[in-house]
Each structure stands twice: as C-alpha cells, then as structure tokens.
Design a protein around this nucleic acid. Structure first.
Length: 227
DNA sequence: ACCCAGGTGGCCC
DNA sequence: GGGCCACATGGG
C-alpha cells in the first residue's frame, strides 16, 4: 500500500486545524518540541501557560531566568529538572550566538541547522526535526513513536531506524510543506485515538489496510523489541 | 493500582 | 551499533 493512500484515508477521518501546533511565536514551538518529549501534550500546555504568565516565554528571559524558577514553571511537563537544563542552555545559545533572532537562525541551509540543533543537549532527531518543520518551515519529515508504530503495524517498511524511516517518507511524498505538516499531525491523531500501544482496531480508519486486526501478545513482544 | 504519553543522554558491552 | 536505565508529571 502506498503512503499517499494512507494519508488520504487519514484525512477523511480527522480534521486537522490549519495551525495544528498551537503557538503565538516561533520560539513557543521550539520550547513545546522540547517539553513534549515522552510527555502528554496536556501537561506541556500547563507548562507553557506558566511560562507565558510569568513572561518567560521568550529567548532573552529564558536565557537569564533563575534555574529553580524555570523548574517550577515547567514542572507539569515532567522530567522538569532535565528539561530546565536543556531549555536554559538552548536559550542561552540562541541569545548569544544569534542575538535571539530566530530568522537569522533559520535562514540557512536545512542540514546545517539540523546538525547544529543536534549538538544541543536534549535535542535529538525528533525534536530537531519538529523544530525544523513546524518552527522553521523546512521540508523535513518528523518521525515519532506513533509513526514508527503505524509503519510497523501496517508493515509499510522494513524495520528501520529513524533515518531509514525518514527517507522512506521523504522519498515517497512530494515536496510539500503543508503535506509534511498535515501528515505528521494525522499520524499523531491516529496514534492517540486508535493506533495506541493497546490499539482500538475495531473502529480504526486504517482497519482494512492493516493485517493486525487486534493485537496479539506476540505482536506486543515484537514491538517492544523492535520499535 | 496500574499503564501510558508527540524522547534523550549516559553508560555498558 | 544496540540494549538498558533514569528522568517525572498528570490523565484515563
């Protein structure tokens, strides 16, 4: 089955808002990308709200804020001490190297930016790519746990690491920023609503395209080994 | 009382 | 290059 067919099928079932990743500023998207690591989005929203209330959600403030205060503000998002350290260092780099100017930061070759993002502590491939796609409007497909799980269950690809999966998407989709953003959003919705770790195959929009049809203990074991 | 969430870094082999 | 673990809150 081809990727575009999956996309169209999902489009028929989920309404994705034009601005799926809620934000007032570009920086807010970058902060959200970091905070949402292995964390439910609802918890991230609380953290972001706290940061906004305290006037901290900008590069300058975050780079100067006292660590304990930052920890308290983002506490609801979990792993808060670790994330406070990441955010603090990240903001300081943006502030000192780019004078807090994200246009300057993003106005370069995509892969140069990606390499740089990956040097920051706490920014791995998925976080970097989320920032590039949603904050920087760069043509990079984001691979997350939902994406891996969906591909695995649909048997769309050979089992692969992040890079292989990303290439699979990028090679099989037209170069269209809107498509990249929407497709990732749709996969997240699928993952939240149906293709969960304990999946609800009965009403899944991809039911007819998927061989799993209810998950066996055997599949669960393979997933835990191979995802 | 569990299980899970839009990962990452560090350590070990 | 992989396998394991810590990191932590909040909702179902």
């Amino acid at each position: 089955m081809n990727l575009l067919a999956v996309y169209e099928r999902l489009q028929g079932h989920f309404k994705i808002k034009d601005c799926w990743w809620p934000h007032e500023t570009t920086f807010e998207i970058m902060v959200g990308a970091l905070l949402t690591q292995n964390t439910a989005w609802g918890n991230v929203e609380k953290a972001i709200k706290n940061l906004k209330t305290e006037g901290l959600l900008n590069i300058k403030s975050l780079s100067k804020i006292n660590r304990k205060k930052l920890e308290e503000a983002i506490r609801p998002s979990g792993f808060y001490k670790q994330k406070a350290g990441y955010l603090s260092a990240f903001s300081k780099h943006l502030y000192t190297k780019y004078k807090g100017d994200l246009n300057a930061f993003f106005n370069r070759d995509t892969h140069i930016i990606r390499r740089e993002l990956l040097l920051y502590k706490g920014v791995g491939k998925e976080t970097a790519d989320s920032m590039l796609l949603y904050a920087g409007n760069k043509l990079i497909f984001v691979i997350d746990a939902y994406t891996k799980r969906m591909c695995f269950r649909l048997e769309l690809t050979e089992l692969g690491d992040y890079d292989k999966l990303q290439l699979f998407f990028q090679d099989n989709l037209r170069n269209d920023l809107f498509l990249y953003k929407q497709f990732h959003a749709l996969i997240v919705e699928l993952g939240k609503n149906f293709c969960k770790s304990n999946p609800l195959c009965g009403k899944c929009p991809l039911k007819r395209k998927c061989k799993q049809q209810g998950i066996s203990e055997k599949l669960k074991k393979r997933e835990s080994r191979e995802l």
